Amino acid sequence: MPRTGRPKAELTLTDDERQILTRWARRAKSSQALALRSRIVLSCSEGKTNKDAAAALGVTSPTVAKWRSRFIEHRLDGLVDEPRPGRPATITANQVEDVVVSTLEHTPKNATHWSRAKMAERSGLSKSTIGRIWKAFDLKPHRADGFKLSNDPMFVEKVYDIVGLYLNPPESAVVLSVDEKSQVQALSRSQPAFPMMPGMLERRTHDYARHGTTSLFAALNVADGTVIASTHRKHRAIEFRKFLTKIDKEVPDHLDIHVICDNYGTHKHPTVKTWLDKQPRFHIHFTPTYSSWINQVERLFAEVTRDLLQRSDHRSVQALEKDLREWVKAWNEDPQPYVWTKTADEILESLSRLMQRTTGAGH
């Protein structure tokens, strides 16, 4: 006789419980943790085994078993937080839901986001309780990140194209991630910095004098991390063409050159197109609009900003350009390639989830 495992405790729902769980599971802006727990309980209430429910929801059997038993023992309150020894909990599931929903779907009067004090005043709970609820559901209303979804009609095709170059580069070719860090300023502080000492941070004046700007043109070899770079005082099509000419001279003649760059106007200027038409080994791949994150050279620019520019003190553009050249030279002595791991399908799936969470997306 096949093993059936230990008999599972029967899980039945009242009409009110089913209505609340369905609301939690379907609410577009619910905490994902609470929504998943609700779907687990609803699935178990249909008579599914832990194994079947886990397969249907993409979780493990122990996870299903945990929330099945928690619900049977504590009902709706069991889905909110781990039970703790001591006095019984005085915060109900409805109070927690109200805090979570209010955090996600509303803003306080005369403010752009919630603070613990404002939410405590609204809900009648203590500030520490609000903090614990936010921590349990990974809510951080005091923080914000930036994004802009691409409106490029060829977005999917370009993602597959560029990620394909990263993960499966063509033979007898070099793949270069190319861009310009424009308007790099030569800045000098009004007074010398006070050096760091034990117990005291380095101190710099907030004001400075400007001594002009330059642009750093860089081509990152995605295979070995080496960089071809040059500086130009202006940032026009003619400078970009000169940089392409430098790339042409430095890359061995027997290799094709695949250039990944963004949609900046200078990259598509007739002057550049005419030059490229005469260079059959050059192949240009444009990133989708608003998608600089896919161009690996941006990570190099972040490195040079952190290592050199963030605390730089240059009293002339010439001094700034000299330091930029020396930084690139030092980088090439021990180049560090950036390892790309995500496939195009994984990227598109991640963006799809983001769009589903964005107001109005998918409707």
Rank of each mutant, 00 (worst) to 15 (best):
Y290M: 05
Q318I: 03
T271S: 13
Y338I: 11
Q310P: 03
P280F: 00
D323P: 03
R315P: 01
A330T: 10
V304C: 07
A302K: 14
E333K: 14
N332F: 07
A330W: 02
D313F: 04
K273Y: 01
K322Y: 12
A319R: 11
A330M: 06
D334M: 11
A319S: 14
A302F: 04
L308A: 05
S316D: 02
A330E: 07
L309F: 04
L309I: 08
W331A: 05
E321R: 10
D334P: 01
R306I: 00
D334Y: 07
P280V: 01
E326M: 09
K329R: 15
F301M: 10
Y290S: 15
D334G: 08
Y338S: 06
A319N: 11
S291Q: 03
D334C: 10
E303Y: 15
K273W: 01
K273T: 07
R281K: 12
R306E: 05
L324G: 04
S312M: 09
S291W: 06
T274G: 12
V297I: 14
L320Q: 04
T289Q: 13
A302Y: 03
L320T: 00
S312W: 02
T271G: 14
Q296T: 13
E321L: 11
N295P: 03
Y338H: 14
P335Q: 00
T287K: 12
R315T: 08
P337W: 07
N295D: 13
A330N: 13
Q310S: 15
E303V: 11
T274V: 09
I294W: 10
F282P: 13
N295S: 11
A319M: 12
K322N: 11
A330L: 12
S291P: 13
E326P: 00
P270G: 03
L308Q: 10
P335W: 01
F301Q: 06
P335V: 00
A330Y: 01
A319K: 15
D307V: 02
L276A: 11
V304W: 10
V317W: 03
D313H: 15
R306L: 04
H314I: 00
N295L: 10
W331E: 01
S291Y: 09
L276H: 08
A319V: 06
R315H: 13
R311W: 01
L324D: 01
V304H: 06
S316W: 05
N332A: 07
R311D: 11
L276Q: 13
T271E: 15
P337F: 06
A319Y: 07
E326K: 14
D334E: 13
Y290V: 04
F301N: 09
S292T: 08
R306N: 12
W275R: 08
H269C: 06
V297Y: 11
Q310H: 14
P270E: 00
Q279V: 04
H285V: 04
T271C: 10
Q318Y: 05
P335R: 02
Q310C: 05
V317K: 06
D277L: 14
E298R: 14
K278P: 00
V328S: 11
D313S: 14
Q336R: 15
K268N: 09
W327E: 02
F301E: 06
